[in-house]
Amino acid sequence: MKIGEGVEWAVHLCGVLGVVPDGHTLPAARLAEFHELPPDYLAKHLQALSRAGIVKANRGVNGGYRLAKAAANITLLDITLAIEGSEPAFRCTEIRQQGPCAAAPAACKHHCLIAKAFLDAETQWRRSLASVTVADIITTATSESFDRERRRTFQSWMNGAVK
């Protein structure tokens, strides 16, 4: 399974948006600037996040983005599904019903061990992503990744970026 870079970007963006002060927004151009991301590609992901109800866009001169709900109510699974779609990673094609020794459809009422293993793994993967919220990411990032100078630089950038 390969998760596109857009998921990583979207999680980071939601982390930044999660600390935007109430009543304010962050313009898409400033979000792109924060991680030096291509603005057009970023816009596509912001639209997907907006359609999923994860971010909210405000239009106009003071327009920008903010989280549509509390960071504690947005999971990594929510973001992943918004960007990648909800299609399962593994899709059983019932290959055992093909070829010279094909099984009859009646013999294939249950998933084979191969399909079961992949589907169980995906269920566990989804549960794991659903257990981590944007609030968790923010808490960890600020406590482990931000020394005093980086925190001061971030706050200065944020103060100049929000609308």
Results as ranks from 00 to 15, higher is better:
1 M>H: 11
3 I>N: 03
4 G>Y: 06
6 G>S: 05
7 V>Y: 06
7 V>S: 05
8 E>L: 11
9 W>L: 15
12 H>G: 14
13 L>Y: 10
15 G>A: 14
21 P>H: 01
21 P>K: 01
22 D>A: 15
25 T>Y: 13
26 L>M: 11
26 L>A: 02
26 L>T: 02
26 L>F: 03
28 A>D: 13
28 A>C: 03
30 R>W: 03
31 L>Q: 03
33 E>P: 01
34 F>G: 01
34 F>K: 07
35 H>D: 14
37 L>T: 13
38 P>T: 03
40 D>G: 10
41 Y>S: 12
41 Y>L: 10
42 L>S: 04
43 A>F: 05
44 K>Q: 09
44 K>G: 08
44 K>N: 12
44 K>E: 13
49 L>P: 02
53 G>R: 07
54 I>S: 05
58 N>Y: 09
59 R>I: 03
59 R>Q: 14
62 N>Q: 06
64 G>R: 04
69 K>S: 14
70 A>D: 15
74 I>Y: 06
75 T>P: 00
79 I>K: 01
80 T>I: 01
81 L>W: 08
83 I>H: 01
83 I>F: 03
83 I>M: 04
86 S>F: 04
86 S>P: 05
89 A>I: 14
89 A>S: 11
93 T>Y: 07
94 E>Q: 14
94 E>K: 15
95 I>W: 10
96 R>E: 15
105 P>I: 00
106 A>E: 15
109 K>C: 07
110 H>R: 05
115 A>S: 15
115 A>E: 01
116 K>P: 02
118 F>N: 15
119 L>G: 00
120 D>T: 11
121 A>F: 09
122 E>C: 05
124 Q>I: 10
125 W>K: 11
125 W>L: 09
126 R>H: 12
127 R>L: 12
128 S>Q: 11
128 S>C: 09
129 L>K: 08
133 T>M: 00
137 I>H: 07
139 T>L: 06
140 T>G: 09
141 A>Y: 08
144 E>H: 10
145 S>M: 12
145 S>L: 12
145 S>Q: 11
148 R>H: 12
150 R>M: 04
154 F>E: 01
158 M>W: 04
159 N>V: 07
159 N>M: 11
